[in-house]
Simulated assay, not measured.
Amino acid sequence: MSENLLFNVLPRPTFRWLRVNHTQGQVLGATDERANVVINANAGVVTPLINTELVKATFPGVNPTALQNLISTGEAHLITVPANGKEVVIIEVNAAKRIASRFQFHVGDRAELEVLILMTGDAKDTSVETFTEFIIGEEANVVVKKVNLISEELQQIEHRYTKLADRANVEFINIEIGGKENILHFEQDLAGEECELIHDLAYLGDKEQKFDIFMLMSHGGKKSKSDIHTLGALSDVSKKSFRGTLDFLHGATGSEGAEEDTCLLLDPTVKSVSLPLLLCKEDNVVGNHAASAGQLDKTKLFYLMSRGFSEAEAKHIIVESMIRPIIDRIGNEDIEEAALTAVRNKI
């Protein structure tokens, strides 16, 4: 796909001269030979996805053209967890070739689901494209953990849509370390009353890495809650863009939403753009947003160096201490150690 596309378009554009309303780019290797992912789950949980229609017809993904190309050329899986069921699903993505995979999750009422997605692979000049859809039933509990350790010669594109019913609880954890260009698009419909969604994302960029992050929390149900945390560090000439939106729709009275973006700038040549946005069509709601970007705290650096650490070692400690609490929540010692090793190699 050689045409230039607009990725992660902001829901309410700001001044064009700021050049932050979208990211322009291409999908690499969109016609390359494709490799399949490996899904580990109990028998009967995973079946082929026959109905290829979108769960939400208007979902654009990173870009509508890129999304439709993934759907038409990639593999597709349906993962079903019945009411009151409890399942663990592990998805192994080995990007030895282009990856184009779609996963549609149907989680029944009062069910429990844990998903672990591990991305590795050292292919070059192609893409790792994934599309996940989650339909979460009433009082269901879902935890999704994703660790991206792919080669920095690969492009990663992730489309994700989630819809929550009454009193559903969802937690997303993203560890984004690999990938030359990471374009991530997450849309959540908090349609049910008293549903709750937490999304924590940690990233670490070096060399010419790019992270383009889009999050949209649409509050439609009464007393729904959402919480976004993105944090990371950039070095060399790496770049990060964050477009986070809290949208309180009619009927979302009593709802609460918060978004926070924190970026540590390790070199003066990096670039961090943060656009936390609040939209509101309802009374009696609470929306909070914050963004911070800055260099290493000189006081912390001096303190650690006064204890015998070199400047490089002190920087390692500060950056790792910021990211490690999220990595420790993966719950798999081998994957946590692999992620920590990747972090230490990059700092």
Rank of each mutant, 00 (worst) to 15 (best):
residue 87 E to V: 14
residue 64 P to M: 07
residue 105 F to H: 02
residue 98 R to F: 09
residue 58 T to P: 01
residue 180 K to Y: 00
residue 118 L to T: 15
residue 87 E to R: 13
residue 147 V to K: 05
residue 107 V to A: 02
residue 53 E to K: 07
residue 76 A to S: 14
residue 53 E to N: 13
residue 173 I to S: 01
residue 55 V to G: 04
residue 148 N to Y: 07
residue 91 I to C: 09
residue 83 A to M: 10
residue 67 L to R: 04
residue 72 S to Y: 04
residue 117 I to A: 11
residue 95 A to E: 10
residue 74 G to H: 03
residue 94 N to V: 14
residue 156 Q to G: 02
residue 181 E to P: 07
residue 141 N to V: 12
residue 108 G to L: 08
residue 152 E to K: 13
residue 170 V to H: 09
residue 57 A to C: 03
residue 146 K to F: 00
residue 153 E to A: 13
residue 175 I to D: 00
residue 77 H to K: 07
residue 51 N to S: 10
residue 152 E to W: 05
residue 108 G to I: 12
residue 147 V to S: 00
residue 176 E to W: 01
residue 74 G to V: 05
residue 116 L to T: 14
residue 63 N to E: 10
residue 61 G to C: 02
residue 114 E to F: 06
residue 177 I to Y: 05
residue 163 K to S: 15
residue 183 I to H: 01
residue 91 I to S: 02
residue 88 V to D: 15
residue 118 L to S: 08
residue 89 V to K: 03
residue 76 A to C: 10
residue 121 G to T: 05
residue 149 L to P: 01
residue 73 T to N: 11
residue 119 M to I: 13
residue 177 I to F: 01
residue 147 V to P: 06
residue 191 A to K: 12
residue 166 D to P: 04
residue 170 V to R: 04
residue 130 T to W: 02
residue 93 V to G: 07
residue 84 N to I: 01
